[in-house]
Design a protein around this nucleic acid. Structure first.
Lengths: 193, 193, 193, 193
DNA sequence: AATGAATGAGTGTTCATTCAT
DNA sequence: TATGAATGAACACTCATTCAT
């Protein structure tokens, strides 16, 4: 008996992501994924129960890697603003380094199939971030508004910028990042006394 | 030869939107659209060249309606902050009133097929908004940063919030809106002297 | 709009029967049926909901034709033995004339899929026969035993004989039929006083 | 090198029979058989050359067991009628005791694949029965008609009854059996002088 | 303009079988 | 012997689109 081939599993996941980004979810078929991954269509079903399961797995793994890249090296002793900035820059760097992860995640999470992801599963990866916000609010540094607002302003404009930059093949320089961060920080920071 | 039936055209477009929101782009076929719209598959091809054309048309029309709802009643004489707030509230109201337009647009614009939309076509609808920003920067009221930054912070967090609220079936009350707007305004407004 | 083509429907049903008799239920696929019928696989689904529905329809129609051939010309005024013999000979003649109907029915009714046939639907075709038996019992000509016994002895040996004869390409002559019928009649007839 | 495991072979054959009776020949695949038998698909090929060989083997073994149950204890000294009755009751008892053997055999022998069984192989098991008939004809107790007729009337109605009873989960009592046997015997017995 | 019939190419998935261990 | 991995071909069925009316 041959052992399962981890590289084959990775090849399948990666082929799926590449095709979804190129052709779209709607035109990415199992046989195209198989061809791109260099395996037989039947082989995919050894590693994944069915197409939905494959896509869902891909999404969760991408999200996990994202959170790792952004949060793993987060230092709890940093003051709020520095921690915030650290994540912000990590995130933008991640988008530029793995644009396909990011493009895929954006397409996937807006499709109804994404509803099948255990909400908490994906969200859980970002727990350290929510803790940071709570700390910031307790310390009076962040605005006393619902958490979802702060998350929306902290993350989403950056995502949108990255989407444009990835599509146009450009990137912000240090000044651009600085300017963008100042917008983000002003959005979430409590007005100074 | 009867003239083309405008209500039939609308029925087709609407059926497509409903199905795409329910089943996803990937599982929305021409025959399902036909069945949902109460017409024959062949009839769709009288109104639209092919599937892509139908989807693209739908997207452009949705975007046009969005911009109309938000910008048509914009008064050029309003001061920047009031104009800004006017649009902001119009936009959130639109999301709540036509969640399917909005959910569709989000799914569609993240799929590669959206690349086929004349970039400027969709953007053009929002020209009044960019003029507003330019005026705000000239007047020193908005931050002197690239326009795309201001757009990203002005629009995108709200979109994200609306997406959550639509999915969870909730809505912000006046206080919530006030808080959210203050975040947005702080993000884009020039720091006071 | 083209009208549905009845000959196409017949061609599909007949192709299915031929292939099932040749290759067996297990090796008869929709694409083989399509090829044999000279239509596209997709066309089959215009006439039949799915494979099971196609097979079930085929079975019911074959049973209907069988009962028509055997019972339609049955004369209620005949005495029991003559009526019985009339049907018996009609049935054997039918088997020889339409061996494929018969071979198909035998294979199909022994497969679990046959459980899906409305029991009464197929049985109903043979109501005239059960009425005949009841009359024969009332007149004291047939044995006073459960109806299912009489049916089993009246029909099933003949079916078995026909199965062998069809397979071996032979047929009973008049003497053979006479002998066979005398066995059948002795089985069901009440012992003479 | 371990010796082949007889229980494993039995498990495979039994799994095949169970699945064929449940799902039908058409939906019984090698991997389903493997799963049901608790072995790997590859293992089946150690015991059987291929799928056809497995099915054919199963059929022959079932037929062998049937003939054993019915004929092994047959006493040549019994008079014809008693011997006949002995087998008749043994056969019905067997059907009730091993309905799955019987249901399988009926499905299988009506499928074209059964043509591959050495005709004589299966028939051979029932040689004692044909000898009995020959003796009965010589003694003038059975009708002087072709043997196949007597076999058809002796066996087939009973099979048909058993099929119904197995499906409906009922069984004949002693009176029912008596009545059924009297039909069978009248069918095959020579008319009394 | 409008339709249901028709289709070849494609879908996601399972098949019988073999491979490598 | 026994296995799970692996596969190309096939499966039932649907696709986007065109045809004939």
């Amino acid at each position: 008996m041959r052992p399962k081939d981890e590289t084959k599993r990775e090849a399948i996941l990666n082929a799926a992501m590449v095709l979804i980004n190129t052709l779209g979810l709607a035109h990415t078929s199992m046989s195209k994924i198989a061809r791109e991954a260099g395996v037989s269509p039947a082989t995919i079903y050894i590693y994944f129960e069915n197409k939905d399961h494959l896509l869902l797995t891909l999404y969760v793994e991408v999200k996990r890697e994202m959170s790792r890249a952004i949060l793993d090296s987060l230092d709890d002793d940093l003051d709020i603003r520095d921690a915030f900035r650290f994540m912000w820059e990590n995130l933008y760097a991640y988008y530029l380094a793995y644009p396909d992860h990011f493009v895929f995640a954006e397409q996937f999470c807006n499709a109804p199939i994404a509803d099948a992801v255990e909400e908490e599963e994906a969200k859980g990866f970002f727990a350290p971030f929510t803790h940071l916000i709570e700390r910031g609010q307790k310390e009076g540094i962040l605005k006393q508004v619902p958490m979802e607002l702060l998350v929306a302003f902290a993350f989403h404009p950056l995502t949108q910028l990255a989407k444009q930059h990835v599509k146009e093949g450009i990137a912000m320089d240090d000044d651009g990042l600085e300017a963008a961060f100042s917008c983000a920080w002003d959005a979430v920071a409590a007005p100074e006394a």
